[in-house]
Nucleic acid binder design. Structure first.
Lengths: 218, 218, 218, 218
DNA sequence: TATGAATGAGTCTTCATTCAT
DNA sequence: GATGAATGAAGACTCATTCAT
């Protein structure tokens, strides 16, 4: 009795829906959700397979390893953030651009905590026992460069390359701090979230140097 | 070969060294290091015991549970931070106090990345599969309150309770963002670390220029 | 030597034999035997798996927990007893019914000492450190009710509900005492087992001599 | 620094009370209680030591092994039963003696369920993997012989040796059944316990052959 | 004598992964 | 391409026991 015959007899029903690439996407989506809900370490391949509705070994048709799946999820998450940033970078200019970018960043993190958590806050595998060369942030340099670009647009040409990086990194860190804490410690007695975000974004740029009204200074 | 013979040969003897409280401290130190290097989930009690040089069950003479060990490590880490902050809060005033506090915070995080990581960045147990109610940040409220106190001292009495919290939380988030990113992604192409920190701390408070209040500025 | 090579040499292959439900039954059978031979507490899942010829984790494909396995074994044991009793309750009447039932009970216990031991004599889990609320006897109430039914048939309608229970419980206890002692202490210098059983069952009902009241009989 | 000096300095307080034999008794008493409350397998030497107020290793000064402790506890329990039976065997004669003995047996079991459980119902160690040559029941033959003696007294000389054993063993089994079930399954919907015991004991002997009422016969 | 400290062997259970079909 | 079944390795934790003091 050959394999196909056996299958016909036993009637082991396959899951006909969305094989191939769609199935892969489905897996990634469920994994993203589960990872950020319960943490990468807590979620087992069995759970992922169960959520997708396939068998555990079937995962291995799409990803050679759990680690590979995790990394792909991270890359996707970063991709989503980059996309969001790219979408807004042309929508404003001057100080407004900074506010817009900051808002986009925060909104992304809070509206997709799953993705953000996976991208920035997750303990990734550390193969050799040291700190990891985390593929996620490495891929995230692209997102950083977008942010840096926005800084250039906002600050005009008067800054050195290093000054630009300095500002961009400081701002990035500031934004990340807010988003990560809001996500990670939702039970902390935060002030009104909306006001906090607004104030935080406002503080990203120093107030316009010249007193714009009334008495002018330099 | 009976057991005694085997013991003589392999030399599996008791380890009389450092009993009692010192042993406990030793365990905590190794656990702190391992947790921050590899993550709480990845480090097993076996590994901790191995690092300390004792057997796995011996851990349980000092901590009833891995979770208890983790929590103690967290408490210590937070305690160290609070101590550091308390130490500096009286050493400066005005804007300098803010810089001093910020510097203390960042220094703590960078000089004790293990502790910081454990205290702020670690995935703690999630009881119901939801977000964790972790003892760490809850205990960390004490540290926050110290920071808030500093804000009050710096800003004087002109701010409402809410405004104080707003500023304090935004600053805290900003500091956390910098420290956590520097710790978590050391391989990112950061600008000069010292300048970045300085600039970041400087940006915590708006520049002292003109008092914008009362007299309106746009 | 890599893993594959090692596997070829040691021959650690899969064990395709008897999958699915048969495997489950096989596990139950071995567990029943081992539990009754050595006691539930003494038998480890490793031992059960070893007896069945599968790996320890494979057990968990069939039973989520050792406790679940124990409970299934108990349920089966009780089910077998109930079945046996139900089979004979219609086969006799009058005093004969009592003897038949008693005989069925004793035969069950002695011919399936494993099951009987598991059902009646085993220390089950004690949730609060107190006496156990074990699922076994609770499920065994069904068997008791069958016995009670037989008592009703035998004694006719002249007894109050309470008198019926009184008699049924006393008889049940008596039967249990014999079976459990014969099983538990086989090395005791018992008299001829067959005669003992017969006499014991005979003693369950008072001799039919004269009906002490009303109409005198033989 | 010698040992005694060290002890004086560290002040490791010994427990001065009842050393030697009293201490041994204390251990046995606590063990009996714990074993019957939680089961032999569930109670650890640590728990016993803790209950007694001594250190775990100190147990090994009195009993070479947990098993030895268990066996001693069993022997004591049987001793207590034998004592009780011996105490009542001279207090009655004829049918009353049987009732008195039965009552003593049941009372012993119910008033000292700890001892009874340990003596009769406990899973003892089965060293070779088979059914145990349980030291408890073996020691309990003495108690059986007392019961047998009572049967002789009650039934007069008209019975063969074998008939005596037959009756004695059947009765013993009957009593054991009641006691063990009452102890083991206290939550079963038993009828009034007192009536049940009385009826059960009454049924141990066949009713006096002659109709006792009204017309006397001998 | 008694103990604090320690331990090897064992408990149940879960995991990522692989095999044969 | 998919799966049911299985597994080695590891997880946290407990136990009876022993050693040096």
């Amino acid at each position: 009795m050959d394999m196909d015959t056996a299958r016909l007899i036993t009637g082991t029903g396959r899951k006909p829906k969305g094989m191939g690439p769609e199935r892969r996407e489905e897996i990634l989506a469920h994994a993203l959700r589960l990872f950020s809900e319960h943490g990468v370490h807590t979620v087992s391949t069995r759970q992922i397979a169960g959520a997708v509705g396939i068998s555990q070994p079937s995962l291995y048709a799409y990803f050679p390893t759990k680690q590979a799946l995790v990394e792909e999820v991270c890359k996707r998450a970063f991709g989503a953030l980059t996309e969001r940033m790219r979408a807004v970078i042309g929508q404003a200019s001057g100080r407004d651009l900074m506010a817009t970018m900051g808002r986009a960043y925060v909104d992304f993190g809070l509206s997709q905590p799953d993705a953000y958590r996976v991208a920035f806050m997750i303990e990734v595998a550390r193969p050799d026992g040291g700190l990891a060369q985390d593929p996620a942030l490495m891929a995230g340099i692209e997102a950083y460069l977008l942010h840096r670009e926005a800084v250039v647009k906002v600050m005009g040409g008067g800054l050195s390359e290093e000054a630009i990086d300095l500002l961009a990194q400081s701002q990035w860190a500031s934004l990340h701090g807010l988003v990560s804490l809001l996500i990670a410690r939702p039970t902390f007695p935060w002030v009104d979230r909306e006001r906090l975000i607004e104030a935080h974004i406002d503080s990203l740029l120093p107030p316009p140097t010249a007193k714009p009204s009334r008495v002018s200074g330099t």
